[in-house]
Design a protein around this nucleic acid. Structure first.
Length: 385
RNA sequence: GGACGGUUACCCAAGUGGACAACGGGGGCUGACUGUAAAUCAGCUGGCUGGCGCCUUCGGAGGUUCGAAUCCUUCACCGUCCA
């Protein structure tokens, strides 16, 4: 992205202003200015944990119209090491992705590496999944690592928890608040936006408390963490309403780790601007195609002689070019191109949905769009309360 | 012509009197996956049934035994060796 693409408010290094261009109910279409370009929201971010979106080249991502890619502190800290990435001129150069990038803080790994971690007030001790050695992350070291990596948006080091265990959720939430403050204090770079993360499980009062605490700290953007980890959809959607009623409307809201087409729709309706999820690329590697009318397991025998594309309405490279029969053949033959072609398709589905949602907001027809899309997905709408 | 060895489910293969509808692998079928310890994981794979269960299977036929994939006889086919 060159300077000519930047709006005036972005050219004077006023990074991380969020400009809301249109609103439709609680939903918004906006622009978030970063050193590597403008994010037009709502936006979906493909996940590239280890400095790569699995099976996908940066050129593919460009063609798909991706504008934000997520990478991970924990993984890059372990391998190849954040200092090496810094020596290689930072993550953008290293992986050759020149648009906005976001790094997660490693907090989620505390949660997902459940039996290999020990949390204390100062930080977390992990057992490396690579070589079994003990490693440590603290709010300060997470920020240091993320500064070495050099993403445009970096995340506060938080503690995710089982959403149903109130005692633990409350403890983890309070610690997340203290760690958020420490992250702010540890931060030194001006060209990175640090987002705070709201926790609190599925408990309204805790979520409200967390949203107030985090939004009082002056972050340029806010994330909602600890969702899509086992709670019901209804609980998740309701939690979004509770939290977004408190998070300031003039700053971007990022729903971490979500998701599915229906979650993007329901999330945008409730005021979410940024999503990320491994689902499209993981499902692709597991032979499942995401479409706006549901999932297709392309390994199924029923597709063996099916000459149609995955989705006749889809404009992605895979659908323009290949039949279901061919994709099934690649899968059955364990050819790695299957993962690439399905990843392209699945990412296209979510990236296009985010663009369509944005367009619907700009044109003031989001409700109708959402109703129609959910009907096509054959999923009942969850009305906002 | 003779001497051994072999023949088990879609394929390979274990089993050598009862716990065997038969280990294991491959293949096949199906399902799961939401800030990636995930190109992973789980289930099914003789027939009928929702299940209990019943029925038919270990090259063919016959036999021994309360009971046979397993022991005996014989036939067929495959392999190696000797004539």
């Amino acid at each position: 992205m060159n300077n000519n693409d930047k709006p005036s408010y972005c050219q004077s290094n006023h990074y991380f202003d969020y400009r809301i261009i249109a609103q439709d109910g609680n939903a918004r279409a906006g622009e978030f200015c970063t050193p590597h370009g403008i994010l037009q929201t709502p936006v979906f971010a493909p996940v590239g944990t280890q400095a790569t979106v699995k099976a996908i080249t940066p050129a593919h991502l460009e063609e798909l119209g991706a504008t934000l890619v997520l990478s991970n502190t924990y993984h890059l800290f372990l391998r190849p090491g954040d200092e090496l990435v810094a020596k290689m001129d930072g993550l953008h150069e290293f992986m050759q992705w020149h648009k906005p990038m976001l790094t997660d803080s490693g907090g989620f790994q505390v949660f997902s590496l459940a039996n290999m971690r020990k949390v204390d007030e100062d930080g977390v001790t992990f057992k490396s999944h690579i070589d079994g050695s003990m490693k440590r992350l603290t709010p300060e070291s997470s920020i240091k690592i993320q500064e070495n990596l050099g993403a445009d948006i970096i995340m506060a080091f938080d503690e995710c928890s089982d959403p149903n265990n109130r005692v633990y959720v409350e403890q983890a939430m309070e610690r997340t608040h203290r760690w958020a403050q420490r992250c702010l204090e540890a931060k030194t770079r001006e060209d990175q936006a640090l987002f705070g993360i709201v926790q609190g499980g599925i408990f309204d009062d805790l979520r409200e408390q967390s949203a107030r605490a985090i939004s009082s700290m002056g972050f340029p953007g806010h994330a909602i963490g600890g969702l899509s980890v086992g709670e019901t959809k209804a609980e998740m959607y309701h939690t979004l309403e509770v939290v977004n009623a408190i998070l300031p409307a003039e700053k971007p809201r990022y729903l971490m780790g979500v998701g599915t087409p229906e979650d993007l729709i329901e999330g945008v309706l409730r005021g979410i601007d940024i999503f990320d999820c491994v689902l499209p690329t993981r499902l692709a590697r597991h032979n499942s195609a995401m479409t706006m009318s549901g999932r297709l397991n392309l390994m199924n025998a029923t597709f063996a002689e099916d000459q149609r594309p995955i989705d006749e309405h889809c404009t992605c490279y895979t659908c323009r070019t290949f039949s279901r029969a061919y994709l099934r053949h690649l899968i059955v033959a364990k050819e790695m191109l299957a993962a690439t072609l399905l990843s392209i398709h699945n990412l296209h589905t979510l990236l296009q949905l985010a663009r369509d949602l944005r367009q619907a907001i700009l044109e003031g027809r989001l409700q109708a769009f959402a109703d129609e899309a959910m009907a096509q997905l054959n999923i009942p709408r969850t009305p906002e309360r």
